[in-house]
């Protein structure tokens, strides 16, 4: 029983790492209807920027702030150079644009800051911790708490601030938002910057775990099943989706893996996502249009 609990909790906590990546997608998808393939590249770019700054001897907090500045500048540039000219184009056009963007960002990141694997030390011990009789990873606990803080901050932003209500207004009805003078371009810049910051948080945690390198941009592939399960338009869905994927992966690896020769983790999340596509195509928390009965 304790072993089961350990597997479950370990999986749930690891799942929040997926959620962190998925949140960035949700933000951009909600506000502009774009599936931002470049989210992974943004994640790599921001983590690399942070590591490079640190390597130049700049202290943690300053590095973090500078990276955020870079992200904001990047978001404004992307909105001006990519989104604005393609406004009103089809979804697939925008998707292709973000695909292109992801290669540009990856190329830029590695060209400017090098392609070798860089270690990132956030000062979190990756030693096991005993909670009662259950052993959990300290790193996973920190990751989960970070996700919790991020979600709280986003919830406050969305529900309590003018900017947040404007963001939700744009997500709800873009034309109506334009009609009352909401500046759509500004909103997109803000959303991409916020998604970039969410990507930074995810990038730092993933980077600390597996090193900062090119393959970091591939964690987006882990976010896809999370999005399919949780729905593309809900932050809550991204969290729950991440938890489900994390827990299911871990449990399957331990309990099903041995009987089919192991190596379940790389594909099990996709299998689960396919099942969900049949049962709930909009995802658990996918937005249904409100209709009066």
């Amino acid at each position: 029983m304790i072993f089961f609990l350990e597997t479950l909790i370990g999986g749930l906590l690891a799942g929040t790492m997926y959620s962190l990546v998925a949140i960035g997608f949700v933000l951009i998808f909600k506000a502009s209807g774009v599936f931002n393939f470049a989210q992974g590249a943004m994640l790599l770019f921001s983590a690399l920027t942070f590591v490079s700054l640190q390597e130049h001897g700049i202290p943690f907090l300053q590095s973090l702030l500078l990276t955020v500045v870079v992200i904001v500048i990047g978001a404004v540039a992307i909105e001006r150079a990519v989104l604005r000219p393609l406004m009103n184009r089809s979804q697939i056009t925008l998707f292709m644009a973000t695909l292109g963007l992801s290669f540009i960002l990856e190329g830029l990141a590695q060209g400017l800051m090098g392609a070798e694997v860089r270690a990132l030390d956030l000062g979190i011990e990756d030693t096991p911790l005993m909670l009662g009789e259950v052993m959990v990873s300290q790193f996973d606990l920190v990751a989960a708490s970070t996700a919790a803080v991020l979600v709280t901050v986003l919830a406050l932003l969305f529900n309590k601030t003018h900017i947040g209500i404007s963001l939700r207004a744009v997500a709800d009805d873009t034309r109506a938002a334009l009609s009352i003078g909401i500046n759509l371009n500004r909103i997109w810049q803000i959303v991409w910057a916020v998604a970039g910051c969410a990507g930074l948080v995810a990038g730092l945690l993933w980077g600390a775990r597996q090193g900062v390198q090119f393959s970091l941009s591939l964690v987006v592939l882990k976010a896809l099943p999370v999005l399919i399960i949780g729905g593309f338009t809900s932050i809550g869905g991204a969290i729950v989706g991440g938890l489900i994927v994390g827990a299911a992966e871990n449990l399957a690896e331990v309990y099903v893996g041995p009987s089919i020769g192991g190596g379940i983790t790389p594909w099990f999340a996709y299998f689960l996502a396919l099942v969900f596509l049949h049962v709930r195509p909009a995802g658990l928390f996918g937005e249904r249009a409100i209709e009066r009965v």
Binding site: H162, I165, S166, R168, A169, A171, D172, D173, R175, A176, A177, S179, I180, G181, I182, E287, A289, I290
Partner: peptide, 19 residues
């Protein structure tokens, strides 16, 4: 009409004042 259907009535009104 195009109200923001997911927002509350008051949030809809507030959004008009942000400008």
């Amino acid at each position: 009409r195009h109200v923001f259907s997911q927002l509350t009535v008051e949030e809809n009104l507030r959004s008009g004042g942000f400008l």
